[in-house]
Amino acid sequence: MDARKIGPHRATAPEFYMTPPVVRLRDFSRSFGDDTVISGLNLDIAPGEFVTLLGRSGSGKTTLLRTLAGLDPTTGQDVTVPDSRAVVFQDARLLPWKKVWRNVALGLRQGDVRRRAEDALREVGLEHRLDAWPLTLSGGEAQRVALARALVREPRLLLLDEPFAALDALTRLRMHELVLALWTRHRPAVMMVTHDVDEAIALADRIVLLDQGRIVTQERIEAPRGERAHVARGLRSRLLSALGGHVAEGPSPAEIIALHAGGLA
């Protein structure tokens, strides 16, 4: 955090950043013992930007997310993250002994905590489950509570760690819509970790592809969400070949994705 090298690195940042970034990592490395998980990583995330972090298991994406979440120590590293941040984990991590609204209100200290929790739960469509016990929720509902719990803090940085990986396909699509709606309304910077290429293409402003602790490639998607069909095919094959998948000519992209989904998971 202390030795901040701004000069030479600033030039490498894309022109996209008119305002100072909310997340700024310079030459970031992390290793466990002899095992280097992330090395020499530079990353900026602009306010309100939706970034998805794509990579296979062991690529270091979860480690990166934990760093941004403040769950891992960053002593001696050039890491800037906002204080106001919130995480949605793959498993919702609701406290089973607290009712839904109390889970959302966890750690809130100011104002009418109950009303704020209610408002957040209304936003994710769960106003009827305020007093439910978490263990009675479905997977999708639990994940919506986790979203409400993150958003009630009005974070500048929202971190999503494969939040929809455990949900069925239909629920996942609904959750995509919900996340986009909430992001549009609240405009936090989002960093979402996923291993689903289609999910990344559907949601992101920018896709960052991580492999063996390094950023292999980045793709910025300018096309508005919902009108990305024409860019999706090319993006998919570029991302998959960067991930090391063999993209055969012939089968439709959807089939390729299906073929590779298992290998990337």
Partner: peptide, 16 residues
């Protein structure tokens, strides 16, 4: 520990 980590990510103090 995952629940503890979740609580920590929301800025809960050790006592909380």
């Amino acid at each position: 520990v995952r629940l503890l980590e979740g609580a920590r990510s929301f800025g809960l103090s050790r006592a909380e």
